[in-house]
């Protein structure tokens, strides 16, 4: 370990909650009590505040993706073949998303996703982390009325996300995180597992220079690790608040290890020492060339103030690890 310390990344792995000011502004807009211009101003201020925090403390920038309504909406609203469907519960949470409904072969719209990325990232694309839905999770949550089989849709999603990454790479983005929690909450088997590997292979083949992260959460990763280790990605992220460290098995050293260590399901701040220790335990069990730290699940399960405290704790953990070493 001491001979080759892993590179240490840290940052947001999901949208950040809206500040109380943004909550009020967006509510007021819904009720016709404010203007879109004032809401836009509130978004810009909130994005800039979060960017400043990220630039001080972390390696990757997101600006919080505060404008996104859910992870799937940018695709459901911009790609053809999709419409936005009914409210649906997001995993084991009290938050909901609009279920994408696929009723024709899906097609990308050029610059569709790019137009939905947080505006401040355009000028910082080299350090930005682009959030995209993982192909397996996306295929699982959509309502497929297209006539194609789910396996065929999974294949299409791999191809289309590959094109998306290619287009965004051309705009200077280099780090792409695929949020794919259903890989661990309802792991694919048989043809679906092979289809998932193929979908990620399509992305990797078309974008050999991109850094790709598959981020999972919501369940212990143990049973899914053999499959995750086969995915042709740069980093595999797992939920350490759901996973017993003893169940983590070694994987390919070149495959980056992502650890979700900040728990958005409670406002209780993580204790610094326990968190540093659990990271070291996980890394001992699964040595890796790079370590990526982040929240274990979407931080927007919290109100903004405790979420910010948790984010600062993540920065503290990174600082201790940088100072004291990972071993």
């Amino acid at each position: 370990m001491t001979a080759s310390l892993p590179a240490l990344h840290a940052g947001l792995t999901s949208p950040f909650p809206r500040s109380e000011r943004l909550v009020t502004a967006t509510r007021d807009l819904d009720r016709g009590r404010t203007s879109p211009e004032l809401v836009e101003k509130a978004f810009v201020e909130a994005e800039n505040e979060l960017l400043a925090l990220e630039e001080r403390s972390f390696t990757d920038l997101t600006a919080g993706y505060l404008r996104w309504n859910d992870l799937f909406r940018p695709i459901a609203e911009t790609w053809s073949g999709f419409t936005v469907g009914p409210l649906t519960r997001w995993l084991e949470t009290n938050t909901f998303f609009r279920q994408p409904v696929l009723s024709a072969p899906p097609r990308r719209t050029p610059l569709g996703i790019a137009s939905r990325l947080p505006p401040p990232l355009a000028a910082r694309s080299a350090n930005a982390r682009v959030f995209l839905p993982g192909p397996y999770t996306f295929t699982k949550i959509l309502e497929n009325r297209s006539g194609a089989s789910d396996l065929e849709v999974l294949g299409s999603m791999g191809q289309l996300l590959a094109e998306e990454v290619h287009e965004l790479s051309g705009l200077g983005y280099g780090l792409f995180q695929f949020s794919d929690p259903i890989l661990v909450t309802d792991p694919p088997e048989g043809k679906a597992a092979e289809g998932t590997v193929e979908a990620y292979r399509a992305i990797a083949t078309a974008n050999p220079r991109a850094t790709t992260v598959v981020w999972t959460y919501g369940a212990a990763v143990g049973p899914s690790l053999p499959l995750l280790d086969r995915l042709p990605v740069s980093v595999v992220g797992l939920d350490l608040t759901e996973t017993e460290p003893e169940s983590i098995r070694p994987g390919p050293h070149a495959l980056g290890l992502g650890l979700g260590i900040i728990d958005p399901r409670t406002t209780l701040p993580e204790t610094l020492r326990d968190t540093v220790d659990i990271v070291r335990q996980a890394l001992r069990r699964r040595p890796s060339a790079s370590l990526w730290l982040g929240p274990s699940a979407p931080l927007d399960l919290l109100p903004a103030r405790p979420a910010e405290q948790k984010l600062l704790r993540l920065a503290d953990v990174r600082a201790v690890l940088l100072r004291e070493g990972l071993a």
Binding site: V23, N69, P303
Partner: peptide, 17 residues
């Protein structure tokens, strides 16, 4: 209470600790 949590879109609720 520590603030609002989003339920969906611009719908929020307060969640106690």
């Amino acid at each position: 209470f520590q603030g609002h949590v989003r339920s969906w879109d611009s719908k929020y609720y307060r969640k106690g600790t």
